[in-house]
Amino acid sequence: MGLIRSPESDPILVDFASEIGSVGPVVVRGGGTHWDLGGGSDPAAREVRPPEGIVGIRAEEMTVEARAGTLVSELHEALRPFGQRTSLPESPGSTVGGTLAVGWSGIARLGRGQTRDSVLQVHYVSAEGRLITAGGPTVKNVSGFDMCRLLVGSLGTLGCMADMILRTRPIPEVEVWHRVVDVDPAEVLRRCRTSASILWDGRSTWVLSAGYRADVDSDLRALSELGSLRPDHPPDLPPIRWSRRPSDLFDMSRADAAVGRFVAEIGVGVVHTENPVEPSPPSPGTVALQRRIKDALDPTGRFNPGRRVGGI
């Protein structure tokens, strides 16, 4: 018998598992902030709400355990007194579980890290209705295969996440947004080591500089040599999001009508645009492999039917 606290001992998880059950199409709905992703869900699937609430903040371990239905904003609010937060991006109404299911990182990933890397442990319900533990509670762990990474970005098609332990990070001493116009964004990336985010719309570059005050100040001095630097708020992001190699972003042009208005995450490769763009095709040979993974973990295809992940 295991020495780790079993999820079966947690009545909230047990209730959630029994609600998911072992038969019939089912989908877990968090904040629904990206509900149309992957073509949306089959209306025939039963909607289940995930459990909510913060289970425990372990500030000295720099970890936090929360139910999947907890709002990210609420989680970060609770962590703030400890001077910590997670890598997860906040958008109004988004939940921790939903954010992991989507898998996207926030615009400040250069400084705050990627969503996928922040997940330490997940309790989820399998297609057979069993409570499963993936990963472990500590900040470092290679025991067994990495089911956590697989669940992040799987849009709820492999298992129904119930709660999770996330790594937290200290909130930097200083975080400030500035804007500079008509400079090479690559140069901004080179000069500003404290940049947690660099956004570029083809003309303006917004920089979130974060770190120790002395370092942020010295970076801002270096940036002001490029052009006039003004405190600003980050720009609104156009609705469509796609992904490229970081260097591809520099080729983008405001004149490209097909793209429309865009905001590019410099040094990352994500671009937010007005108009949809053809997504990159899945890597060769992986469609069959992804299909096998789906079939192995959800043999009857009951999880989030209709929703497409990648090429399947």
Partner: peptide, 21 residues
């Protein structure tokens, strides 16, 4: 097969993440 990609957020399941370890 090619797992993952050089894009910021390759499409599909994180096969690269599953493979590592």
């Amino acid at each position: 097969v090619m797992l993952g990609g050089l894009d910021a957020e390759p499409a599909g399941y994180d096969l690269r993440g599953a493979f590592i370890g």
